[in-house]
Amino acid sequence: MTILDKIIERKKEEIAAAKSNTSINQLKESAFFGRKNYSLKESIKNKNGVIAEFKRQSPSKGIINDNVLPLEVTLAYENFGASGISILTDKDFFGGSFDDILNVRNHISIPILRKDFMIDEYQFYEAKSIGADVILLIAACLSPTQVQEFTALAHELDMEVLLEIHTEEELKHFNSNIDLVGINNRNLKDFKVDLQHSVQLKNLLPKHVLSVAESGIYHIDDFKYLKDKGFDGFLMGEYFMRNTNPIKAFEEFSLLI
Rank of each mutant, 00 (worst) to 15 (best):
R114P: 10
L188G: 03
D179G: 02
Y218L: 09
I138H: 05
A17E: 14
I138Y: 08
A16Y: 09
S30C: 14
E164C: 04
G81P: 06
T2V: 11
N175P: 10
S129N: 04
N203R: 13
S60D: 11
I217F: 07
K115N: 00
V104K: 00
N79M: 14
K12Y: 09
L163T: 12
K224G: 08
L40D: 00
S215W: 15
T74Y: 02
L113F: 00
L88V: 02
E149P: 12
I44V: 15
F240D: 02
E14K: 13
K45L: 00
L171P: 01
S176P: 08
N203G: 04
M1L: 13
F240Q: 03
S39Y: 14
Y225V: 06
A82F: 00
P59E: 05
V193T: 09
V104D: 03
T145W: 11
L204C: 10
L157T: 06
K47G: 03
V193D: 00
V73W: 12
L201T: 12
L102H: 05
S30V: 12
S30K: 11
E238T: 11
S39H: 13
Q26M: 07
F54C: 01
D120L: 12
G96L: 03
N48E: 09
R105D: 05
E14L: 08
K61S: 08
L235M: 10
L4C: 09
K229V: 01
G230R: 10
A213Q: 02
M236T: 03
S176I: 10
I178V: 14
Y77I: 03
L180R: 00
Y239G: 05
F234N: 07
N187V: 06
G95D: 13
I44H: 05
L255G: 15
T244Y: 05
N184L: 05
D190N: 10
L75Q: 12
A76I: 13
D133Y: 00
K229F: 03
K41T: 01
I183S: 03
N21H: 13
I130E: 02
I119H: 09
K128S: 11
F32T: 05
N46L: 08
I178M: 07
K45I: 00
T167D: 03
P144F: 05
P206L: 00
I119Q: 12
S143Y: 13
E72V: 15
R35H: 12
K61M: 06
E149W: 13
A213S: 08
E53R: 01
K128Q: 11
A52S: 04
G182E: 04
K19L: 13
A249T: 06
Y38W: 14
H197Y: 15
D221P: 06
P70G: 02
G95N: 13
I217M: 07
E238Y: 07
Q57L: 08
L113R: 00
A127D: 05
A213T: 01
